[in-house]
Design a protein around this nucleic acid. Structure first.
Lengths: 106, 106
DNA sequence: CGCATATTTCGATTCATGTCGAAATAAACT
DNA sequence: AGTTTATTTCGACATGAATCGAAATATGCG
């Protein structure tokens, strides 16, 4: 059922707004970014951002952590690495990758 | 506007059925797979598969080519490579990737 | 030309998504 | 305790997605 999980993560990233959010978090690096900052930067309603953030968190791509009065969000790199691994592995990656039948039990 | 494109491709892969379809095509390798084969393998209605296939094609992840009476589908690797590149680049990838501020013009 | 096979398009249905504003909750400060 | 700031949850709405079966289209064969 690994495929289901990968699909869920891909879906989470497969929305322009969420991808923008996620990218902003990645760029923010280890320090993360408070929700409010994100909102100002991306320019959407707070409730909408919260909704998207929740989906990213549920997909394991982002972590949220209370930091006094604000909620600090951070990109969770291991998940992204695993996802890229899945794509590269299950779904090809390297230039060559023209492996014919492999385990495709016809 | 590259982000929009990446989001579109991620969304295309972000559905379990489509991801299954795509993976089947990748596994089929350079020979590709006719639609009918895919349908039998995945077990969904032909119309549903056609719909999903269309989305994968529109996202540039799959190519379709008439082969006499059947339509041969193939995974289009360059797109996947570019997508992985985008994720690795814009959205982190390598294990380390704890680059703090970089261009995050806070 | 008409039939058989392969695939898509159409129409319908059901459910999920993206979005917002307003109200509720959480945490800190006075 | 009350106020302010930060964020989420709620309710609503419009739009899009996923799915199917049936009908339409395309290709090759006899």
């Amino acid at each position: 059922m690994k495929l289901e999980i990968a699909a869920r993560q891909l879906e989470a990233l497969g929305n322009p707004t969420r991808l923008r959010v996620y990218r902003a978090l990645v760029r923010a690096g280890a320090d993360g970014l408070p929700v409010g900052r994100l909102q100002a930067r991306i320019g959407i309603a707070a409730s909408t951002l919260s909704h998207h953030l929740k989906r990213l968190v549920e997909a394991g791509l982002v972590t949220r952590e209370r930091q006094a009065t604000t909620l600090l969000c951070r990109a969770h790199y291991p998940t992204m690495n695993a996802l890229i691994g899945f794509l590269a592995d299950e779904c090809c990656a390297d230039a060559g990758c023209a492996r014919d039948g492999e385990d495709s039990a016809a």
